[in-house]
């Protein structure tokens, strides 16, 4: 069961970062945070998430001959990394709260 959980970790992290970005954005806009502060916080969360997922992708990258479920952990970590790059990049380029 641990192997299965590990295989999903990359996307569990993606989901966590995605939810956190959405929640912080909603919270910041509702409470009238300064736009610059909000952007710094959002970009910091995004980059921190990318760093963790990047490290995991490197660390878990499949070794030839390993079991499928172990290879899956590395592949899904990379999928999580690419997904986080793609779904999170708006925080770096768009103006929040409009």
């Amino acid at each position: 069961m641990t192997g299965l959980f590990r295989a999903c970790t990359g996307l569990i992290l993606w989901a966590a970062i995605f939810s956190l970005l959405y929640a912080v954005e909603g919270l910041g806009c509702a409470n009238g945070w300064a736009i610059a502060t909000l952007r710094i916080v959002l970009v910091a969360i995004w980059l921190a998430g990318l760093a963790v997922l990047g490290w995991l992708s490197w660390r878990w990258w499949p070794i030839r001959g390993s079991a499928m479920i172990d290879r899956m952990a590395g592949i899904i970590a990379l999928v999580g990394l690419v997904s986080t790059v793609w779904t999170g990049f708006p925080v770096a380029i768009l103006i929040a709260c409009i």
Partner: peptide, 30 residues
């Protein structure tokens, strides 16, 4: 890998049914 990815990513789409209700643009972009 694609099935597992779909299982997760499909939970990040729900707001696309609500694009017209007045949610901030950054959130729409996610």
């Amino acid at each position: 890998a694609a099935i597992i990815a779909l299982g997760f990513l499909s939970f990040g789409l729900w707001v696309h049914h609500m694009f017209t209700v007045g949610i901030p643009h950054t959130a729409l972009a996610f």
